[in-house]
Structures are given as structure tokens and as C-alpha cells.
């Protein structure tokens, strides 16, 4: 089954140390190793501010590792990796551009033919339930709508890798559930290699093939859990005993790691 045999993203003993203003070393990541296969959906799960985002930025080549290295398809990452789509916690839409123009920013920066991509962008928008909103400015969209546009922008150029940094963290629980359903559907269609940074245990288990549980700062991998639940998963799966076995196990782990106290 494992046709690509070698791992697609290979994170090799990556560590990151920041310098504080007073010149002290602040460790953020301590030697993280992780292999991710092509088309796999992996969640980095851990408490807020534990260094998950740092790890994601190093994978994207937007931040340099203090030790270790990241290889994608066997090549060491030194510059920003561009065959990639990123979704941040805030949608980061440019407010002077309409939804469609925000998506087409990808084409402008990459110097691709915009006219070729207009139908693709419009199709993506309709896939996330936003057809008819092409010419709306971000100011006229709700938080969930903005994040959908950001997801379209991350996918329009058909990248190999989709990185998401707590993309639904700022949304209410109901919108978040809907976004999880939509994201799973789109991912099943396109089968991108996806890394999701989240601090929601339910979200991680619901969406992922693997959940990488991380310890608090400086972060390292506490456990790498394979999620063996059939797809497409429906929201109701969260009430199943299999699902709760995973989430219960992870909650216990976080308790052992000292994330939850007095429970």
C-alpha cells in the first residue's frame, strides 16, 4: 500500500531556541522528529503556546531551525517552500481586495495567468458554500466566511502541502463543526498532505490520520497516534466509543503531562 515508501515530509531532530530581549535562550522546540507520508492528514495537538506553530513555520521554510533539518521529497528546506498553501488563525485577507481578488493574489504573486484561475477560484468558493460572495470585501463577511476564503486561497494553486495553524480557533463551536465537515470533504477530494495545528482534541481526532500529541514548552513529541476511523467521518462519530477511546486516551495523556490539573 505504501507506494511512496519514503516519507514526503521528514522532520529530523528539529530544535528551536529563541533569543529573548535580555539575551537569554528560550527553548521552543526540543528535538522533534516526524515523518509524514504524501496525502496524509496529520494534526499537531498540544496546549497553546507550546511551539506547534514554530514547528509548522520551520516545515514551511519560513523560520530556520536551530538544530536539525526538514526535508521535503528528500531536499533540505532552506528557503520558504512555495508548493504550499497556508491558513492562519486569522484569515489574513487583504481588506482592500474582494474575496475573489484575495484568492487570486496567489496567481499575481506567482505570476500565473489569472484568467485561467478565475473559474477554479469560483469553483472552490462554491465548494465551501460561498458562491455569490466573489465580489464581497472581507469587511462584509463573517469570521467563518473569511476563513473559508482563506482556505480557498491556500488551495487555488493546487499545492502539494496544506498547512493550517489553528484555522478554526477563533470560530464559534457550531461554525467550527461545519468547517471540520467542509475541510474533510475537500481534503478527501484533493488528498493533499495536510498538517493541522490545533489545541482541540475532538477536532484533531475527527480530521486526522495521525494525531501527534506534543508536550508543553519546549515542545517535543509525546505520542504519535494513528486514528483508525473510517472516512468520510460524520459529526455523529464523536459520540461513538471508538472516537471517545481516542479522545479519552489523549485527555489522560495531557493530564499526565500536567496540562490539566485538579481534574
Amino acid at each position: 500500500m505504501d507506494q511512496t515508501s519514503a516519507s514526503f515530509i521528514d522532520i529530523r531532530s528539529v530544535a528551536k531556541v529563541y533569543q529573548s530581549d535580555t539575551g537569554e535562550d528560550v527553548p521552543a522546540l526540543s528535538s522533534v522528529s516526524l515523518k509524514i507520508k504524501q496525502g496524509e492528514f496529520v494534526s499537531l495537538l498540544g496546549p497553546s503556546g507550546c511551539g506547534k506553530t514554530t514547528l509548522m513555520m520551520i516545515v514551511a521554510g519560513l523560520s530556520a531551525a536551530s538544530k536539525g533539518e526538514v526535508q521535503i521529497e528528500g531536499k533540505k528546506i532552506v528557503d520558504p517552500y512555495t508548493d504550499i498553501g497556508i491558513v492562519f488563525q486569522n484569515a489574513e485577507l487583504l481588506e482592500w481586495r474582494t474575496a475573489l481578488q484575495n484568492i487570486l493574489l496567489q496567481m499575481e504573486i506567482r505570476k500565473l495567468d489569472i484568467n485561467t484561475y478565475i473559474p477554479i477560484a469560483k469553483q472552490l468558493l462554491s465548494q465551501v458554500g460561498l458562491s455569490g460572495f466573489e465580489d464581497r470585501y472581507p469587511d462584509e463577511l463573517s469570521g467563518g466566511m473569511k476563513q473559508r476564503v482563506a482556505l480557498c486561497r491556500a488551495l487555488v494553486h493546487d499545492p502539494d502541502i496544506l498547512l493550517m495553524d489553528e484555522p478554526f480557533g477563533a470560530l464559534d463551536a457550531m461554525t467550527r463543526d461545519q468547517m471540520n465537515i467542509d475541510l474533510q470533504r475537500i481534503w478527501l477530494e484533493k488528498r493533499k498532505t495536510a498538517i493541522l495545528v490545533t489545541h482541540s482534541i475532538d477536532e484533531a481526532v475527527f480530521l486526522s490520520d495521525r494525531v501527534v500529541v506534543m508536550t508543553g514548552r519546549p515542545a517535543s513529541v509525546a505520542e504519535d497516534i494513528k486514528i483508525d476511523l473510517p472516512r468520510p467521518r460524520k459529526l455523529g462519530i464523536r459520540d461513538s466509543s471508538e472516537f471517545n477511546a481516542y479522545t479519552g486516551h489523549i485527555r489522560e495523556m495531557f493530564k499526565d503531562l500536567g496540562v490539566f490539573t485538579n481534574d
Binding site: 513555520m57 514551511a60 519560513l62 520558504p80 517552500y81 512555495t82 504550499i84 498553501g85 497556508i86 492562519f88 486569522n90 489574513e92 487583504l94 482592500w96 493574489l105 496567489q106 499575481e108 504573486i109 506567482r110
Partner: peptide, 29 residues
């Protein structure tokens, strides 16, 4: 300008000139 916006542009392979023209200057307007 938000640092995330600039990171986004870097991940698109954007140049300094592009980030100024497409993000920084319009943000500043």
C-alpha cells in the same frame, strides 16, 4: 502590516518589491 501577511507572501515566493506593492503600501494607504 501584519507579519502573517508577509509570511503568506513569502510562502507564495513573493519578492520584496511584490510585498511592498501588494501588501505594505495598500495597508499603509
Amino acid at each position: 502590516v501584519r507579519p502573517e501577511s508577509l509570511m503568506l507572501l513569502r510562502s507564495m515566493g513573493g519578492s520584496r518589491w511584490q510585498s511592498f506593492w501588494k501588501v505594505r503600501l495598500p495597508t499603509a494607504l
